[in-house]
């Protein structure tokens, strides 16, 4: 049996780099589109609202793995020769935007109605009302759930392995196959995930406690 040396650790760290990069792409892309989703879900227009509701139903109601497959092979079928990166970025963006959009919609709707009324009475238009008054409060309310989703997303990036990404989980699998030490390797991989996700979860719990005492 080969031992786990600096080379293996370096390989795992390369995988971790991809895990973080995928998370970042999913979170930023999902965040931008999620904002649009949240705003359209709270829009006055019926058609706009229903379209987004359907979008959310599809992406929350199907597994991320399937979404990855569909985008990865679907884009290829349409005749585009896209990089795996682009396909995965699209899939994670769509997936994350459905969840973040729904979380933030809840936040927007949890902001007391009096805030919208005060903004309107002062003559503020939609953009300023959202940007200056509603969204800052909505994001604060949504922060615990947003952090919770970020943790899910970090772990969810392991699914990108099926379209060829050697992220942390896949890197662990490869190292385990080479060294025949699956237990040690996956314990190590688990510890790495844990060290990233656990502080985030703690942070989320702390924010939530602070919000609930502030509202009392």
């Amino acid at each position: 049996m080969a031992s786990i040396g600096p080379n293996e650790l370096f390989f795992l760290m390369q995988g971790l780099k991809w895990t973080l990069a995928l998370t970042l792409v999913g979170f930023i892309g999902g965040g931008l589109f999620g904002l649009i989703v949240a705003l359209t879900r709270t829009a006055q227009n019926d058609l706009v609202r229903r379209t987004t509701t359907g979008y959310i139903a599809v992406f929350q109601g199907t597994p991320l793995l399937m979404q990855l497959f569909v985008v990865y092979y679907g884009v290829a079928l349409m005749g585009f020769n896209v990089d795996a990166w682009v396909a995965v970025a699209i899939a994670f963006t769509l997936h994350a935007s459905a969840f973040l959009g729904e979380i933030w919609r809840g936040g927007i709707q949890a902001v007391p109605k009096g805030q919208t009324e005060a903004a309107k009475a002062l003559g503020l238009h939609y953009v300023s009302m959202m940007k200056d008054v509603i969204l800052p409060q909505a994001f604060k309310i949504s922060l615990p759930a947003t952090i919770g989703f970020l943790v899910q997303l970090i772990k969810g990036t392991s699914l990108a392995a099926i379209v060829g990404f050697v992220e942390l989980s896949r890197a662990g699998q490869i190292v385990s196959n080479q060294t025949f030490r699956p237990l040690t390797v996956f314990a190590l991989v688990g510890v790495i995930y844990f060290l990233i996700c656990w502080p985030l979860s703690l942070w989320g719990a702390r924010v939530e406690r602070r919000l609930s005492t502030a509202s009392r």
Partner: peptide, 8 residues
């Protein structure tokens, strides 16, 4: 107090 005068 300054938000609306600046924005509107």
């Amino acid at each position: 107090c300054t938000l609306a005068p600046m924005r509107v």
